[in-house]
Design a protein around this nucleic acid. Structure first.
Length: 922
RNA sequence: GCCCGGAUGGCGGAAUUGGUAGACGCGCUGGACUCAAAAUCCAGUGUCCCUUAAAGACGUGCGGGUUCGAUUCCCGCUCUGGGCACCA
């Protein structure tokens, strides 16, 4: 029987072997260096995996297997981000419990992943919806509730510490991240009752309950975090989102803004991703300044934030956000009606409408005036939507000459514009650039802008008018969701005071309910649970958002079955943090911020030993679909081939890619596809119907989804793995094209034939030739470099070339083929294992060593030819001075016929220009 | 508007970073095997000039520059993907 490459049997056999032998289970082992490779765990959706999903998993699996061959103890776990909206939406429609559908989806995902031959340590699987897992999500929340952020210590400290300081010196004794707190003395603190004290403490807690403007989504019936909203609509579902003031649980992520920004530096992430986080955190350096404001009867100190303190001599008006607390104080009786109408109109707008009206300038005069603290000038105080309540102090000083938004506002309402920079033209637009020489600016006149900014702030600080201040755009994360399928809060309300559950009560399990909709009174679904109380007190009815469970999962993998701690310090000290994290860039401003925050918080408390969770991050690109089209002549049921379609008025229609091969439509299959096409007629070219095509997102509605199961069945997992890597660079988006897979499959069959003849294994014990060794070692060097640089597409090419060379040489030597099998095992593990065992090994290839690369030739020679080069010459040659260029080149290349100077194959590149050797590379 | 990327044959992409552009694969063309098809194997395949070949010229989005030499570095554009978007 001919020994053909039977991938179906081989893959089944080795997947079974790995499972039976627990090949990929790891333990902490101080005798070996650790390496932690993590994939972003999937949300198990009902649609299953398509061929794009495993891309990152394949890349990380290759790296994992490579690191194992290099002697590392590699932690490579997988689990499921199992709480979330889609399962709940499905539950609302069908009444099926989300746990049931989630369970089914997980089983499907697992089945699909198993077919691809990943080397996950499944004994460490976690699911965020498992009570043994979410116990630790709740635990972390309780810790956040019990801590505050001390700005002086620059870390989280226990809330008891805060209480002690309040009792000693009142609110002034602490410099901490907090909400709006009226200053109080120690005596006032002691005079407060329990509830009042708790209200104050709540303003300081890292997990806190606070009134805030939130993204409310009516259709989803829940609030959403900023990163869950894009362009004013919800990321999940695509429903409109509006701003509402609500009392919600929040995480004081903003307290960590500085550290989140600074510690980004040391991470091995792509610049674009770091840049995204920097923008999201949005540090801006400036000053807070106090303006006296007078409403006709009373004077107030109004604080504003500016990055352009140098422009203070050009302030011609002030602007408040409509939601600002100053609005009420500074609105005069005459303006009251107009201001309230403006506020009401602003409140009613959805986020989407506000975005749509971005360029419209609106505003209303408050009736009050403020005094410029430097010039003593009296300027009007206006109210406008273009100032945001949530940033800075919700109030600004307006300098229309040098800020485009202030300029537009001044033009609209005919307010004065004073230029402050010599020679700037402000007739058409403001001059926003931070360059030029100041004028009209008192003591700042004559300075450059860059000098004037610090000089102005110094002056302001010295005269007690304000202080340096750094503001961040990063907002606190809204942590409540009015939803069922999430972690319950371990919080109950005792006489209206939010009280933490004792840790011993964790996990607080999600109760059973009969319906998943909000109640008639608009309460979250948990209000439907029977007896949702603790010791007779009501429990919190909202649940945690999706990012709660995914924020610390990488820690749980280190010690997933620990009932006593999130992770033991032994496991944490060994595995430390993730060395390589692979996942999509869509989590840049969500998960990857929250996880870093969560980790830093646990670091402050001493539960984890590393400041950052993910050392190196690779963002795999998307695999796009390749859609096919047919062209229906308008008003008929006749379809015209691509090349002829311009002769008709046609409509482009997506056609299922399974009905198309090589862009040729199977017309009979098309007729059978849909009843409306049963009578279809075709206008062919050269007897064929040619379809159009386009690269689009892979989705059911475009009929271009390719299922990995099908590819595994037809070509095998090893072919799938190689082909996904071969498609292009891992970080790049690229279209899937099932056509091309044949090439990779052919390669694997050629690879197989290198080891197997018609009568089975034909590996010989002969010593390899120099040419064979050269081929092998070039491959080793290349593959090693490629894996370390995540350039897997070029490795696959290198394998193809090497196998081509070795086939031509009819090489069947063990000394070549064994290293070759090891080399390919990270990419195509099943075939590698099979060939390895066929060559007589009893132990799995996973425990072999990655072959060592050897330079084949060492060259020593001196060089006397006239030579100019730019640092690239790797060695010296000895050649006569007047040798003709052609001969020099031949000699340097090691031409076997001249053969005098160097052995053949030594030189890869010789560059000779105008009789001079410019560059020689070996 | 602001901040990052990207642009190379019919297609996906190589060129380890200033040194033979187009590796490798797909597709296409021709051939072998076959009654035939599929599969497999072999050869060719950037463009132009040309019956063909040789030889030559032109070629990495566009226009300049640096260099003996530029896909690679610099300046100015065009197109395109992504992120942020009244953040004072």
């Amino acid at each position: 029987m001919a020994m053909e490459y039977n991938f179906v049997e081989i893959e089944k056999k080795w997947q079974q072997y790995w499972a039976d032998n627990k090949t990929f289970e790891v333990k902490t082992d101080p005798s070996k260096p650790k390496y932690y490779v993590l994939d972003m765990f999937p949300y198990p959706s009902g649609a299953g995996l398509h061929v794009g999903h495993p891309l990152g998993y394949i890349a990380s699996d290759i790296y994992t297997r490579y690191k194992r061959l290099r002697g590392f103890n590699v932690l490579h776990p997988m689990g499921y981000d199992a709480f979330g909206l889609p399962a709940e939406q499905y539950a609302i429609q069908t009444g099926q419990h989300p746990a049931t559908t989630t369970e089914a989806n997980i089983a499907r995902y697992r089945g699909q992943m198993d077919k691809i031959g990943f080397s996950f340590d499944w004994s460490r699987e976690v699911r965020t919806c498992d009570p043994d897992y979410y116990k630790w999500t709740q635990w972390a929340f309780l810790k956040m509730f019990a801590h505050y952020y001390d700005n002086d210590a620059d870390k989280a400290l226990p809330i008891e510490n805060l209480e002690k300081k309040f009792a000693e010196g009142g609110s002034a004794a602490v410099n901490a991240a907090c909400g709006a707190v009226k200053p109080f003395s120690a005596a006032e603190w002691k005079a407060m009752d329990f509830k009042q004290q708790q209200d104050v403490l709540m303003q300081y807690r890292i997990a806190y309950l606070g009134e805030t403007s939130v993204n409310w989504c009516q259709q989803l019936g829940t609030v959403l975090a900023n990163d869950e909203v894009k362009d004013g609509i919800s990321v999940r579902g695509g429903y409109p989102v509006e701003q509402r003031k609500m009392r919600q649980w929040q995480l004081r992520v903003s307290a960590y803004a500085g550290r989140l920004l600074d510690e980004l530096e040391g991470l091995d992430w792509t610049d674009s991703l770091k840049e995204m986080q920097r923008n999201w955190i949005g540090r801006s350096q400036g000053a807070e300044m106090v303006f006296k404001a007078y409403n006709g009867t009373k004077e107030y100190d109004m604080t504003i934030f500016t990055t352009r303190a140098d422009t203070i001599f050009g302030v011609t008006f002030m602007v408040l956000a409509p939601e600002s607390e100053w609005v009420e104080k500074l609105t005069t009786p005459e303006q009251k009606a107009a201001v309230e109408a403006y506020q009401a109109a602003a409140r009613k707008k959805t986020e989407r409408e506000r975005i749509a009206e971005t360029r419209k300038v609106t505003g209303v005069f408050s009736g009050s005036y403020a005094i410029n603290p430097l010039t003593g000038d009296k300027v009007p105080v206006w109210i406008s939507e273009y100032v945001l309540a949530g940033y800075g102090t919700g109030a600004i000083m307006a300098v229309p000459a040098h800020d485009s938004r202030d300029y537009a506002f001044a033009k609209q309402f005919n307010l004065p514009i004073i230029p402050l920079i010599e020679g700037c033209d402000i007739s058409q637009e403001s001059f926003d650039a931070k360059e030029g020489i100041m004028c009209n600016s008192g003591f700042l006149s004559g300075k450059t802008v860059k000098e004037a900014i610090p000089a102005a702030i110094d002056y302001i600080e010295q005269h007690g008018l304000g202080r340096r201040k750094i503001n961040y755009r990063l907002r606190d994360a809204i942590f409540s969701r009015q939803r069922y399928w999430g972690e319950p809060f371990p919080i109950y309300y005792k006489d209206g005071v939010a009280t933490p559950l004792p840790e011993s009560e964790l996990p607080l399990r999600l109760p059973q309910i009969d319906k998943y909709l909000p109640t008639e009174t608009g309460e979250p679904p948990l209000a439907r649970a029977k007896d949702w109380t603790y010791n007779g007190h009501p429990l919190e009815k909202s649940t945690m958002p999706g990012f709660a469970g995914s924020s610390a999962y990488y820690l749980r993998y280190m010690d997933p079955r620990n009932g006593e701690a999130l992770v033991s310090s032994e496991a944490d000290n060994y595995w430390r943090n993730v060395d390589l994290y692979v996942g999509g860039t869509e989590h840049a401003t969500g998960h990857l911020i929250y996880s870093r925050f969560w980790n830093k918080f646990l670091y402050d408390l001493g539960y984890v030993c590393e400041k950052e969770p993910f050392k190196k991050l690779i963002n795999q690109g998307m695999i796009q679909g390749r859609s096919n089209f047919v062209y229906r002549i308008n008003g008929t049921n006749t379809f015209v081939s691509l090349g002829l379609k311009d002769q008709y008025e046609t409509t482009e229609i997506h056609v299922d890619i399974s009905l198309v091969r090589n862009d040729r439509l199977d017309c009979e299959a098309f007729k059978a596809w849909r009843p409306e096409y049963a009578t279809a007629e075709f206008v062919l070219e050269n007897g064929e119907y040619i379809c159009g095509w386009a690269v689009e997102k892979m989705s059911k509605s475009m009929f271009n989804v390719v299922n990995p199961d099908l590819i595994c069945e037809r070509y095998g997992a090893d072919t799938l793995r190689l082909y996904e890597m071969f498609l292009g660079p891992i970080e790049q988006s690229k279209p899937w094209d099932t056509q091309g897979i044949d090439g990779v499959h052919r390669f694997l069959r050629r690879f197989w034939r290198l080891f197997c003849g018609d009568n089975g294994c034909n590996v010989s014990e002969e010593a390899p030739t120099a040419a064979e060794l050269k081929s092998l070692h070039r491959l080793i060097g290349k593959v090693q470099w490629d894996i370390e640089h995540f350039s897997y597409n070029t490795s696959v090419s290198a394998f193809m070339i090497a196998v081509g060379e070795l086939s031509d040489l009819k090489c069947n030597k063990r000394a070549i083929l064994e290293p070759l099998a090891i080399l390919i095992s990270p990419f195509a593990p099943h075939i590698a294992e099979e060939l390895w065992s066929m060559m007589g090994h009893t132990e799995s290839i996973s425990f072999a060593n990655f072959p060592e690369y050897h330079e084949e030739y060492t060259v020593e020679a001196s060089f006397e030819y006239p030579v100019s080069f730019n640092g690239k010459l790797r060695f010296k040659l000895s050649l006569p001075k007047d040798m003709p260029v052609a001969e020099v080149e031949a000699a340097v290349r090691g031409d076997e016929r001249t053969g005098k100077y160097l052995p053949a194959g030594t030189i890869r590149k010789v560059v000779v220009v105008q009789g001079k050797i410019i560059n020689v590379v070996c």
